[in-house]
Amino acid sequence: MTANTLTDVFEEHRPVLTGVAYRMLGRIADAEDVVQEAWLRWSSVEREGVREPRAYLVRITTRLAIDRLRHVQSRREAYVGAWLPEPVVTDFGPSVPDTAERAVLAESVSLAVLVVLESLSPLERAVFVLREAFGFPYAEIAATLDRTEAAVRQLAGRAKRHVEERKPRFDVDPVARRDLTERFLAAASGGDLEQLLALLAPDVRLVSDSGGKSKAPRRVIETADKVGRFLIAVGREPSADMEFRLAELNGGVAVVILTNGRPDTFFQVDIRDGVIQCVYLVRNPDKLAGMPTA
């Protein structure tokens, strides 16, 4: 296999490898490190014996991601405040034309699902990601994890039950979500508490992630009144250098707030029954570097 062919094969499968690693780790930098390590191993292996490059590369990436996840879990235990996954731009492109497949991919990368995946063991998370997000056969997952197919099926069933029990039931209609996001932004930035409260579920939650590096609540804020008043208070501090951008992030519309042209805040809402059930707010600068600015 020539150097060019070697690179071409890896680049062909890079989107899947990155997708697996991100869903496993919840951080772009960690995912990129894992994919880079997979490349190094791919570039030095005796590839004549590799009959299925995609399966081989997914196997390497998954195992590396499991090792990395075990390492970072202890780091997250000492994290200041709530921990949220790093927002990621999602553009599945023409390679995923089917609406049903797009919906599955979008949900698997949503903040709500990724937060729940944090409570799975590394092996359970790997099985769930490979099976539910990418549809890998049980036999292939078993080979990837060096487990029996029966053991993988058991892990898959346990992981899926765990996620279904804890995953909030949100509406995913993109048009409704965009409309509600725009009205939410207008009410919050315009200081219209009455209108804002009309958009919030009574038991709405606001989860913010600053990592202790920016000003943001370190505890989850609950109830419409408390969330609404917090957002109105924040909205009263606008800056002439502040801009708002709508973007497709983590499978749905989100808002990126720029200050002096640099990403300062990310927020996204989840809705059910026409009202906002959860607001995710990320202000940790380490998690905003990849946000769109135009």
Rank of each mutant, 00 (worst) to 15 (best):
I232A: 03
H71Y: 14
L155G: 08
R153F: 09
P285W: 07
A103F: 02
D225G: 12
S189W: 01
A254Y: 02
D179E: 11
L117N: 01
R245N: 00
P168T: 00
L117C: 05
V115D: 09
D179P: 14
G93Q: 00
L6Y: 09
M242I: 11
G252H: 07
F10L: 11
M1V: 11
V80I: 15
E140A: 06
E124C: 04
L40E: 15
F184P: 05
L17S: 02
E52H: 11
R102A: 01
L200C: 10
A294Q: 13
L117W: 00
K167S: 14
L155M: 14
W39G: 07
A133Q: 04
I271L: 15
V234K: 13
N4K: 15
G93L: 00
I60Q: 12
R262W: 00
S210V: 04
D192H: 05
T99N: 03
A21C: 02
V269M: 05
E165H: 01
D173S: 12
G228Q: 12
S43V: 06
R27V: 10
V89N: 06
L288T: 01
L57S: 04
I257T: 14
L69C: 01
F267C: 05
A21D: 08
V255E: 10
S208Y: 03
M1H: 15
E11V: 10
R27D: 14
S95C: 08
G157Q: 13
T99M: 08
G49P: 13
R178W: 05
Q195A: 08
F184E: 07
I141D: 10
S210K: 01
R158T: 08
V72R: 09
V234T: 07
G290D: 06
P292Q: 04
G190L: 10
L114S: 00
A143E: 15
A143G: 12
F230L: 06
G212K: 00
L84F: 01
R70L: 12
A233F: 05
E222K: 05
N4F: 14
V20I: 08
A187E: 09
A112Y: 05
T5C: 09
V220L: 13
G190K: 10
S239D: 12
V80K: 06
R262P: 05
R158L: 01
